[in-house]
Nucleic acid binder design. Structure first.
Length: 256
DNA sequence: ATGGCTACGATCCGTAGA
């Protein structure tokens, strides 16, 4: 079973690239972030025609999350319990014996800003939410855009980024608090190329210079981590015309 | 290099992303 996450930066603008990638990469479960469209405008028909059932929670212009699967996602839950601020950032569903949580974590803008404080409060609420999910579901996947580069090796220029947004110690501590629940970073279960990133700025030739960050992740609970046979970043969609600024991440699981 | 690019919803510029 192949599980993927991709911040598409507008699901309607990226629909052609998304359909091409689904056909080529053939993931069984896909978590999408920054769909940026209200539910009534979600391209459900096109994705169903491509063989994917859809669960989605969106809003106009910002945020928005979706889960695509070969079968109907069940027990769909939107949001984080006790953190009802209306931003569409979390969607959970049960698929193929696993509980899948799709997350679009706040950006935080700048260390010390209101949005940074929001990010840290949101992460604390996410941790509690995932603790409750783990108590109910042994097979848990948390996939999405976490907007945290966990370690210096996940950053193109760590010295320039030290203490800055996505790399600050409180953000990294919030990330490690998720791992401490009993989740594994699927990408780091395996040897990986140096300078592996999932996001590159659109500007200043960042992709050409590989000036990126690894901020999109797939977390697996222990029973799923034991089944994981591979995890990789798919650079191809980032190199297409009119790309998202993020690349997809894929994880393969052996049969239970 | 404090810009540079892209999407959005509003107009032809501001907000946000990371």
């Amino acid at each position: 079973m192949r599980i993927a996450t991709w911040n598409v930066n507008s699901v309607r603008v990226r629909l052609v690239q998304l359909l091409e990638w689904l056909a080529r990469a053939a993931p069984d479960i896909v978590c999408l972030q920054e769909t940026k469209c209200e539910d009534a405008r979600f391209p459900r028909a096109e994705l169903e025609a491509a063989g994917y059932r859809c669960a989605f929670a969106g809003e106009r212009a910002y945020n928005g999350v979706a889960i695509l699967a070969r079968e109907d996602p069940a027990d769909i839950q939107e949001g984080i319990g006790g953190f009802a601020d209306g931003q569409k950032r979390v969607l959970a569903a049960s698929v193929a014996g696993a509980r899948v949580v799709c997350v679009y974590c706040p950006n935080g803008q700048a260390v010390g800003s209101d949005k940074y404080r929001y990010k840290l409060a949101w992460y604390a609420a996410l941790k509690d939410h995932l603790a409750a999910e783990l108590a109910r579901h042994r097979a848990l996947v948390v996939a999405g855009d976490f907007n945290v580069a966990p370690e210096d090796r996940d950053v193109h220029d760590p010295a320039a980024r030290e203490g800055e947004i996505h790399c600050s110690a409180p953000e990294r501590a919030a990330w490690r608090a998720l791992l401490a629940l009993g989740l594994e970073d699927a990408f780091r279960l395996f040897p990986q190329p140096e300078k592996s990133y999932t996001w590159w700025d659109y500007r200043a030739g960042a992709l050409r210079r590989n000036a990126g960050l690894r901020i999109d992740h797939i977390l697996l609970s222990a029973p799923l981590a034991r089944r994981c046979t591979a995890c990789s970043i798919d650079l191809a969609p980032r190199k297409l015309a009119r790309p998202s600024d993020h690349a997809p991440v894929l994880a393969d699981l052996a049969a239970a």
